[in-house]
Amino acid sequence: MTDIRVQIVMSGTSATEYICKCTSACAGCSSSLILRHVLKAAGPDTVLVVPACCTSVLQGVWPNTAFNIPVYNVAFAAAAAVASGMAAAFESMGKNTNVIAYAGDGGTVDIGIQALSGALERETNFLYICYDNEAYGNTGMQRSGSTPIGARTTTTPGGKVHKKKDLDRIIAAHNLPYMATACSAYPQDLAKKVQKALSIKGPKFMHILAPCPPGWRYDASKTIEVGKMAVKTGLWAMYEREYDLLTISGPTKAAMIKPAPLEDYFKMQGRFSGLKEEQVKTVRGEMERNLRMLKAEAEGC
């Protein structure tokens, strides 16, 4: 039988780099940036489970891979369930190998949510990371349940008419030991959260905003700025929840006190070019409600 695995092609990178310099990611890709920090935080005894998403493509083409870590690519809906099986198998062998499912928003909030909900409910010992570029990026930016209202995608040429699904509150309803939100523009915060997540046994979840230059229609050089603006406006709230204890992360605390104008975030991105006034109002309302709820929870009200 032919060996169907693929070998590392690049060498000479730092021992702590698990993504080598030969990915086929787009310029300014923040999801590969996120993964770089996730893997650095996780270390070498880690297996990555990847459903259909940008990451299944950007790792390279058989027989080469840009990832210096075992990567198990699986069907779109299957990441959390495959990770379940893997976690159970490692447990049966007495191994402490990290199992990380790394999925896009389509693979999480849409087609993968059933398997994810099941895996969380079964208290699977794994970390599920949803990197959220707010559309089906790999297939050329079609609307997902995570696409914000008003955003143009190839299947919402007039702008999306429905709101972004509140994934985090769905996840929170599973009462898991650890969940956190993060953003590619804040890698240290992100890495700390990954480390904390992996130090806890049981199901962990992270939702990480991943600005996407071709999808969101901004210059590739602005990928960090756009991510920062999402946080500074308060639109993307960063926090972590350990069991019942919610801690709002520093940048979001600052945004709660003095938020950047929401319009500045929209103006940076071509996808919002047709955004209507009432849609801005809807987004603002949702954002304020979210921050109010988080604040109330953090203050123990």
Partner: peptide, 20 residues
């Protein structure tokens, strides 16, 4: 593993099996 669907039943077997 008391999975939540048959799709996940086979997916879980796949994830477990690939560890050997």
């Amino acid at each position: 593993i008391p999975v939540e669907s048959e799709h996940s039943a086979m997916a879980a077997c796949i994830g477990a099996s690939i560890t050997g």
